[in-house]
Write a protein that binds this DNA or RNA. Structure first.
Lengths: 117, 117
DNA sequence: CAGCGGCATCGACACAGGTCAATATAGCAC
DNA sequence: GTGCTATATTGACCTGTGTCGATGCCGCTG
């Protein structure tokens, strides 16, 4: 998927809503911890049973957060035996990062202020 | 400000909440449009009167969204005459992007999956 | 077949947050 | 001073959502 350029044209309403929907998926402490835990997990994947304890939330709540991340395309799910393994989609996070700061350089702003009028 | 590494150690609760607070500031369609409009504005700054019409929201609502961005450090405010001029802080957005995808390369994931799981 | 473990869904609750109308504040013109 | 313009704040409403307990579904075990 290719989002419609945060910093080029003045973002339309629907484009802004689509981008905001994905950002809202990661704008939650529990889901940020889930992303961090999944990424740090051995093999780059983790099942729900390994995620409930570190978060200190109930199992249904963890499942809910994982579904939000799944619907946003941040993670993928694969069922093996009785367990559901979640895995990150790094391209999605990279694409999101690109939209926030296309240049990616903290030292060279994408749009420097005009200095001589 | 330096946030505590999304993808290294398994993010603690308070660290996740701090990061989520800043992400929540930009995870809103109106505020994304504001960021886009301010960045595209001449001189890199815009006053409230120029932002109300494109957003199609009331003036108090636009002021509210600008305050959220201001409190999150996404924009700065400077008053001249009767107008309040808002300007982006590109470092803040870049720092946020770095946290989401430290590598920044969509083609080279930060943590490749081990194959002998 | 019955039983059990892992995960998802449902229903309900409480709180956060986006929106507006009304009002307040600050600076300029007269 | 009064009045006007630009912006910020307040109060209220209503939707969205994070949370849990209870329950349902699925696959494995015996």
């Amino acid at each position: 998927m290719c989002w419609p350029t945060l910093s080029e044209a003045p973002l339309g309403r629907s484009a802004a809503e689509a981008l905001a929907a994905v950002l809202r998926a990661v704008a939650d402490p529990a889901r940020l911890q889930l992303v961090s835990l999944i990424q740090a997990a051995r093999g780059g994947e983790a099942c729900v049973c390994d995620l409930v304890a570190p978060l200190g939330l109930s199992q249904p709540t963890v499942s809910h957060h994982l579904k939000v991340l799944l619907d946003a395309g941040i993670v993928t799910r694969s069922r093996r035996r009785n367990w559901a393994y979640y895995r990150l989609v790094p391209e999605r996070l990279s694409a999101l990062a690109q939209l926030l700061a296309p240049s990616g350089d903290p030292g060279s702003p994408a749009r420097p202020a005009v200095r001589s009028g």
